[in-house]
Nucleic acid binder design. Structure first.
Length: 436
DNA sequence: AGCTGCGGGGGGA
DNA sequence: TCCCCCCGCAGCT
């Protein structure tokens, strides 16, 4: 929605209210999905927008009965914090996503802070005149209208994907046999070059501490130590959360597809070269970054609707809790995030490996520079004040993960086949590769 | 188990 | 009348 050159139609489009009897239908340009809508925002999404169809938000929004079946109303639940306001290692705080279900939330609040064993505390949202911020969704014609009322007065919780991943990790922890068996014996997963063994330097606070206590041979390493394994987790969450057709449950696939082989296969089949820091160790990151926007972006990308892919930027579907991407794009995910990244760091140290190749064939876009290892806050990043997930970070300058050069091609179909995704339906493929 | 949407109902302004 | 909240239910993942 560009505010220039208003005519009467544009004014109509801008001045609507969710309660209007008639909403504008002559919308020329729909908005990109906003994962962290705040303040008194209004957006018009295409009715084709999958995220909008699902009324998604990374804020923990619960359904509220407004006795109006035409307008879906949701109110914010706030954020769950440690009652002792403890700091995890490296000064990170704990911001959990409140469970949406009432009973699950009560159960959640009975749990203890895994960092200090203190009580957990729910900080309610009071951003709308003392009441929770409310979001309204209304489907009308070819559009989905969104309106937010109030301004969140609390930190961002972990995203839905992160919360789901955390639960998934707990499942792995409690029922490790199905996943871990296939990983046993993997030297890559057990011992990575330059990897330190400190759990405390894992990128998450309690998500990792609680969830990643994998069985013996793991020595505390997450399945997603390697980008390849990570992508499996990511796929899983994609399909689980957003119902992408074709990918049914990749957690099951980890028991049939040995991630070690996957990693080796990728090493062999790809011309990518990895530097000494090759596999990104969990210890290489210490920032609990809020990459929710990236998740939204990657979700959108996977759903075939993303301005970045439109612009031939490669897709970096950043993982859930486990991938230590240390940058946070704008709160407004309509802004291309490449504009907010450092233009050219001294050494092109990039960290997030691609999961989905760019449909245009530009598998790696070197404008995306992420340094997991030595987090230096640039003006392009959110300050910790702006973004509660970003905190001071003790750098580990020794490990690097090099992004392959543009010449590196990733055989997408081969990859999909190897991942067991060769049965993906057309919709899935269309979503992933809208240009194919 | 948890998320989501729906709807009945109570209570306050 | 409007708004907020609680609750239960059903469908889904």
């Amino acid at each position: 929605m560009e505010p220039d050159d208003f005519d009467s139609e544009d004014k109509e489009i801008l001045s609507w209210d969710i309660n209007d009897v008639k909403l504008p239908q002559n919308v020329k340009k729909t908005d990109w999905f906003q994962e962290w809508p705040d303040s008194y925002a209004k957006h018009i999404y295409s009715s084709e927008d999958k995220n909008a169809q699902r009324h998604l938000s990374s804020w923990a929004m619960r359904n509220t009965n407004n006795h109006n079946s035409r307008i879906l109303k949701k109110s914010c639940l706030g954020v769950v914090v440690c009652g002792r306001d403890c700091l995890a290692e490296e000064g990170r705080k704990i911001y959990l996503r409140p469970a949406i279900c009432d009973k699950a939330r009560q159960k959640q609040q009975r749990k203890r802070c895994p960092n200090c064993d203190g009580p957990l505390k729910l900080i309610p949202c009071r951003g709308h005149g003392g009441f929770p911020v409310t979001n309204f969704w209304r489907h009308d014609g070819r559009f989905i209208f969104f309106q937010s009322k109030g301004e969140h007065d609390h930190p961002k919780p972990e995203t839905k994907l992160e919360a789901e991943a955390r639960r998934a990790m707990k499942k792995v922890n409690t029922a490790p046999s199905s996943v871990s068996l296939s990983l046993k014996g993997s030297t890559e997963t057990r011992s990575l070059p330059g990897e330190t063994q400190s759990q405390g330097s894992l990128p998450l606070t309690w998500s990792f501490q609680e969830g990643v206590q994998l069985p013996g041979s793991y020595s505390g390493h997450l399945i997603a130590n390697t980008p390849q394994q990570n992508s499996l987790n990511d796929c899983f969450s994609f399909s689980k959360s957003y119902g992408l057709g074709g990918i049914t449950d990749l957690t099951d696939q980890t028991s049939t597809v040995d991630p070690t082989k996957l990693y080796e296969k990728r090493k062999l089949s790809s011309s990518r070269t990895y530097s000494s820091g090759d596999l990104l160790p969990p210890s290489a990151s210490g920032v609990y970054s809020d990459h929710g926007d990236l998740q939204a972006w990657s979700k959108n990308a996977a759903l075939g609707r993303n301005h970045l892919t439109d612009n031939c930027y490669s897709n970096y579907p950043f993982p859930l809790t486990s991938w230590p991407c240390s940058f946070s794009p704008s709160q407004n995910s309509s802004e291309p995030f490449y504009q907010q990244l450092p233009l050219e760091p001294p050494a092109a140290k990039t960290g997030c490996p691609p999961l989905w190749p760019n449909p245009a064939g530009n598998l790696y876009e070197e404008k995306v520079h992420v340094d997991f290892n030595s987090y230096v806050q640039s003006p392009a990043y959110h300050s910790p004040q702006e973004d509660p997930f970003l905190f001071t970070y003790a750098s580990h300058p020794h490990q690097q993960y090099s992004l392959p050069s543009k010449s590196s091609k990733w055989d997408f179909e081969e990859e999909m086949t190897y991942l067991g995704l060769d049965h993906c339906n057309n919709d899935m493929l269309l979503n992933l590769c809208p240009l194919r």
